[in-house]
């Protein structure tokens, strides 16, 4: 501020006092193009990555949870459900993967709530950027968290003796499918994040929904052992479809109907919740 010769001096508005019809050499427009929307979202995603880099302690859940849960579930339930650990691994690894990664997506909503309370969101709202960008960017950056959780769960499975017969390519594909679905589901929690008043209430609402949804599925036990009325629900539960899709891919290298159903489900969630979330975000503004 003390410097006498200023860069802004030469960069000031060209004609003082008159309304500019261009800013930074671009004509004024009231709408944001699709290309700009993508570019804004990517810039915001980069902000999210920088935040993760600055505060690596927020990755504790995605590193510790896959390790502990995989160990716990396998050794506690393995013998009881499948007779021995080795034959339970093909069942539990896809199940625990889906459960862990989807649970991780709750954090997205919680952090979005905390983030939106900061002053910097006022600036984002005052910038001529796509309204969806701050949200899409935050959600995009969080795929890093899902990737860490996915990789660790697979690695833990491998260490415990799980051999994916589908081959490495199918395992990667299965992991990608889970990450894509988790990203889609995170829009639901982002919506809660935008409309909720506090971060802890986001956590509360999300867990109430997610806990029954992940357990009332085929993730941990054979569905045949459940009462009929429960089987009905388990079969329509989208989590079951995703778990089955991952099992077919990783264990058998098969792309089945469940994968298609899961991806269509993911697309529907985004189509519904992305506009809802952006609208709620705008109204909050």
């Amino acid at each position: 501020m003390s410097t006498a010769s200023l860069d802004t001096a030469s960069r000031g508005p060209a004609s003082p006092g008159s309304p500019s019809d261009s800013v930074l050499g671009r004509p004024l427009t009231n709408s944001v193009s699709l290309a700009d929307t993508v570019s804004h979202s990517l810039s915001m995603a980069k902000r999210g990555l920088l935040k993760i880099k600055r505060t690596p302690e927020q990755l504790i859940d995605v590193t510790v949870q896959p390790i502990i849960f995989t160990l716990m579930f396998t050794y506690i339930f393995g013998g009881a459900i499948s007779g021995d650990i080795a034959s339970y691994l093909p069942v539990i690894i896809p199940g625990i993967l889906v459960q862990t990664v989807i649970t991780t997506s709750v954090v997205t909503g919680v952090q979005l709530r905390e983030d939106m309370d900061k002053g910097v969101f006022d600036r984002f709202r005052s910038l001529p950027i796509a309204r969806i960008a701050p949200l899409a960017g935050a959600l995009l950056a969080d795929t890093v968290r899902y990737t860490i959780a996915t990789t660790l769960t697979f690695v833990m499975g491998f260490i415990m003796g799980w051999r994916a017969s589908g081959g490495i390519g199918s395992v990667v594909l299965a992991g990608l499918a889970v990450i894509v679905c988790a990203w889609a589901i995170s829009w639901i929690f982002a919506f809660f994040g935008v409309i909720a008043r506090t971060a802890s209430s986001v956590q509360g609402i999300s867990m109430i929904i997610l806990f029954p949804l992940t357990f009332l599925s085929n993730a941990f036990v054979p569905v045949e052992t459940m009462p009929d009325w429960l089987q009905g629900f388990v079969h329509v539960n989208p989590i079951s479809h995703l778990v089955t899709a991952v099992r077919e891919l990783a264990n058998n290298g098969v792309v089945g109907a469940d994968l298609v159903i899961s991806l269509i489900g993911a697309a529907v969630i985004v189509a519904v919740f992305a506009p809802l979330t952006v609208r709620a975000y705008m109204r909050k503004a």
């Binding site: 004024l28 505060t55 006022d122 600036r123």
Partner: peptide, 17 residues
């Protein structure tokens, strides 16, 4: 939004960066 700059009462910059 293309014509204005806003500096808030509460610093509107990102603490984590």
């Amino acid at each position: 939004r293309q014509l204005i700059g806003v500096t808030g009462q509460y610093a509107s910059v990102d603490d984590s960066l």
